[in-house]
């Protein structure tokens, strides 16, 4: 499946380095732009092959362009991620050690929550138990803003969730570190934070909100796929990808 890389691949990779993450439509537009710039053929159904070529060359550096679903809108996203933890990767300096400690505490809160969210109050309180240099309130707020800008967290109404980029990159880490604690979607089998839970105490399966929308679409009486109990939660609408017209 892997061919040689050309300038169109390199340009795509450079753009992914700059953006970190892009949605499926954005990836297609970028792919078209890169191919047009370097006068190579492109076809929408060849995007994944194109990315596979890049990935085969990135693999020795433990880098990959990975695909994942947004828990918010159910769309597919592509993220350029690092997959190794080494002496060298620990040298990255975007965040200080104590800032990373607080980020890990925020992840702890989100993983152990039922709704996949952590409030700013909870996060601020968790600075009390920091083992590295404690962050002040203003520093914590500044850090949270940076984490949102850098697309590691999302914020809505004072509550923080893990971004799609974070979930895609940190998924192996989260599975390994949180093991039984982390929720898994019964439908797509990926880790789940913002999801609906079956209320049958002997069942308790979890389904992502967008996976609920797709699975129960059109059904008048939704039943749990595992235990057949009535599914009591509101079924969200399936969200269509927003396609922009080409300029």
């Amino acid at each position: 499946m892997s061919r040689q890389m050309g300038d169109s691949h390199r340009r795509f990779l450079q753009a992914m380095m700059g953006r970190g993450i892009t949605d499926e439509q954005g990836a297609l537009r970028l792919y078209q732009h890169c191919c047009e710039t370097h006068k190579t053929q492109c076809a929408p159904d060849k995007l994944d092959d194109f990315i596979d070529t890049i990935n085969s060359k990135l693999q020795p550096m433990f880098m990959q362009i990975r695909k994942g679903m947004s828990e918010d809108n159910g769309q597919q996203y592509y993220a350029l991620v690092n997959m190794a933890e080494t002496e060298i990767t620990r040298m990255t300096s975007d965040y200080a050690d104590n800032e990373l400690e607080l980020f890990r505490k925020t992840m702890d809160l989100i993983v152990s929550s039922e709704n996949g969210k952590a409030s700013s109050t909870e996060i601020l309180n968790s600075t009390d138990s920091m083992t590295s240099k404690k962050l002040k309130k203003s520093e914590t707020e500044h850090l949270l803003n940076r984490l949102v800008n850098d697309k590691w967290l999302c914020e809505k109404h004072g509550e923080y969730t893990l971004s799609t980029r974070c979930i895609i990159e940190m998924e192996p880490y989260i599975r390994a570190m949180y093991q039984d604690q982390v929720k898994v979607c019964h439908i797509c089998h990926n880790i789940a934070f913002q999801c609906q839970i079956c209320e049958n105490p002997t069942c308790g399966i979890k389904i992502h909100n967008p996976c609920v929308a797709r699975y129960f679409k059109g059904r008048t009486e939704p039943h749990c796929p595992a235990c057949d109990d009535f599914w009591p939660h509101e079924i969200p609408e399936v969200r269509r990808p927003h396609t922009k017209s080409r300029r």
Binding site: G20, A84, R90, T92, F103, D108, E169, Y173, M177
Partner: peptide
């Protein structure tokens, strides 16, 4: 200018969190 590559995974020691 070369674009720079930023990531979260691997930027810190992976330690299991305290049991909740």
């Amino acid at each position: 200018t070369a674009p720079s590559f930023h990531y979260m995974m691997g930027s810190f020691y992976a330690e299991p969190p305290p049991p909740k």
